[in-house]
Every structure is written in structure tokens, then in C-alpha cells.
């Protein structure tokens, strides 16, 4: 999957998790920009992203997943790494 497609999927996840079609994320979006992005929603976001992309965030990674950019980059890295292993 291309990086842009990861971002688009993450946008859909945000709309779904926050039950708000009007939320438009950018790479720079972070909890300080999205009011509803609180601790519990953050946990739901991570759980939903793991399921959607069929990936697992390792314990050492979660402290870095604090913005859309960081989340998308980490998802993309994991998908690339999965593809490489399959190939």
C-alpha cells in the first residue's frame, strides 16, 4: 500500500472512531488540534488502526504515536516490512 493510501485509510478511521464526518486530518494533526482526541479515544484509535491494517504496535513504539504523521509513518513502515517478509 502506498503512503498516500495509508493516510486516506487513517482519515476514514478518524471519522469512524470520532463519529464525525467533518474531521479532516492533516499530517500535522495531533490531540491538541482535535478536541475529541482524548486518552480513551487514543486507545480506540490505536486498536482500530491495528485491526484495519492487520498490524501490531509493539510496546516500545506506542510512546511515539502521538500525531497523524507519526501514526501514518509507523503504519507504512509496518506494511512495507510485512511485504518485504512475504516477498
Amino acid at each position: 500500500m502506498e503512503k498516500e493510501k495509508v493516510f486516506i485509510e487513517v482519515q476514514v478511521i478518524f471519522n469512524d472512531v470520532f463519529s464525525d464526518e467533518n474531521i479532516i486530518i492533516t499530517e500535522n494533526s495531533s490531540p491538541s488540534d482535535i478536541e475529541a482526541w482524548d486518552s480513551l479515544q487514543h486507545i480506540v484509535l490505536l486498536l482500530t488502526i491495528e485491526k484495519k491494517f492487520n498490524i501490531k504496535f509493539h510496546s516500545s513504539e506506542t510512546q511515539d504515536l502521538n500525531s497523524v504523521k507519526l501514526i501514518c509513518n509507523r503504519v507504512y513502515e509496518k506494511l512495507i516490512s510485512k511485504t518485504t517478509i512475504v516477498n
Binding site: D38, H42, F57, T62, N66
Partner: peptide, 11 residues
């Protein structure tokens, strides 16, 4: 809140 959420998720 986010720092704590990440710790909870992790541990």
C-alpha cells in the same frame, strides 16, 4: 492524557 494512554496501551 495521551502520554498516559500510550503507557496504558503499552503495559
Amino acid at each position: 492524557a495521551i502520554l498516559k494512554a500510550n503507557l496504558l496501551f503499552e503495559y
